[in-house]
Write a protein that binds this DNA or RNA. Structure first.
Length: 271
DNA sequence: ATGCGGACCTGTTAGC
DNA sequence: TGCTAACAGGTCCGCA
């Protein structure tokens, strides 16, 4: 589920139920996520109030007065508000129970996600400190991307999916943005012109912003209960459409693999 | 420094 | 219908 728009949608969805609430009890049913859930997390957050809920890349930052709980949803993670005491399913690995009788429940079948704790500035955490700019911020522009890419021989798709270059561009939106920009995924990053980087930056911003907007429409469902998103499906131009007709020129879309991820592109519109 | 492949783990789907 | 293999929204790590 979680690309950046999903994470942002999650943040907006749970924020009203979380910020200002005091943690009564942390329940960890399965600590073995990507990294073990820190032993000290319970004592750090129990009795404390969530002061803010921020996002950096795909990391959610729960600010307490003594530090920050960092949550990453990995490939299959999700967060929901449930009544405290609601029976836990197989993959409901942890609950943060608030004094108001509601709990924030972390679910993650594949357990690629993470729940971490850092005292002090979360942006100094090893996982966060060398992240690239936020894609929707003014820091992320064509000149930056162009300069950063000079000398890079790897595919442009891998380049924009590299979180040290820019955060939050996952496989789906990398494919979509490259299509909108008319750039072939396997083209060497260092060989993309400034002019085309402008198109690419605009495409990334547009595609992410639009997805967040559409995610917003599912907010109510999401917090309310089952929350299976499907919002982006209808507006995808290339992802998941290999062999089908290009929406612009009707050529048959081609699928290839870069790294171990599937890439879909139009052989005519993307060069 | 950069780039690549492997690893983590489970559920769903495609194919025989 | 049932079994097996391939694949899935992420990203860290070790090695060349």
């Amino acid at each position: 589920m979680p690309e950046l728009p999903e994470v942002e949608t999650t943040r907006r969805g749970i924020k009203p139920y979380v910020v200002g609430e005091r943690v009564e009890r942390l329940v960890v049913r399965n600590s073995s996520l990507r990294w073990p859930v820190p032993q000290e997390l319970a004592q750090q957050i129990q009795g404390s109030q969530v002061l803010e809920l921020l996002r950096r890349g795909k990391y959610l930052l729960f600010g307490f007065s003594t530090g920050t709980m960092i949550i990453h949803l990995g490939m299959s993670g999700s967060l929901r508000i449930v009544p405290t005491g609601q029976p836990a399913g197989k993959h409901d690995h942890l609950d943060i129970g608030f004094c108001n009788g509601q709990s924030l429940r972390y679910t993650d079948p594949r357990r690629f996600g993470a729940v971490l704790w850092i005292a002090g500035d979360p942006l100094l955490h090893p996982l966060l400190k060398s992240l690239g700019p936020e894609p929707l911020s003014a820091d992320f522009d064509a000149v930056y991307l162009y300069q950063k890419s000079r000398g890079r021989t790897g595919p442009i798709k891998n380049f924009i999916m590299n979180s040290q270059v820019v955060v939050g561009v996952g496989n789906i939106y990398a494919n979509e943005a490259l299509f909108k920009a008319g750039i072939r995924p396997q083209r060497a990053a260092g060989k993309v012109s400034l002019r085309r980087m402008e198109l690419l930056v605009e495409a990334i911003k547009q595609v992410l912003a639009q997805a967040i907007e559409m995610g917003g429409t599912t907010l109510r469902d999401f917090v309310g209960g089952d929350g299976k998103p499907g919002y982006f499906k209808q507006s995808l131009c290339v992802y998941g459409r290999a062999g089908q007709a290009c929406v612009q020129c009707a050529s048959s879309l081609i699928e290839s693999r870069l790294g171990q991820r599937s890439s879909v592109y139009c052989p005519r519109c993307q060069r």
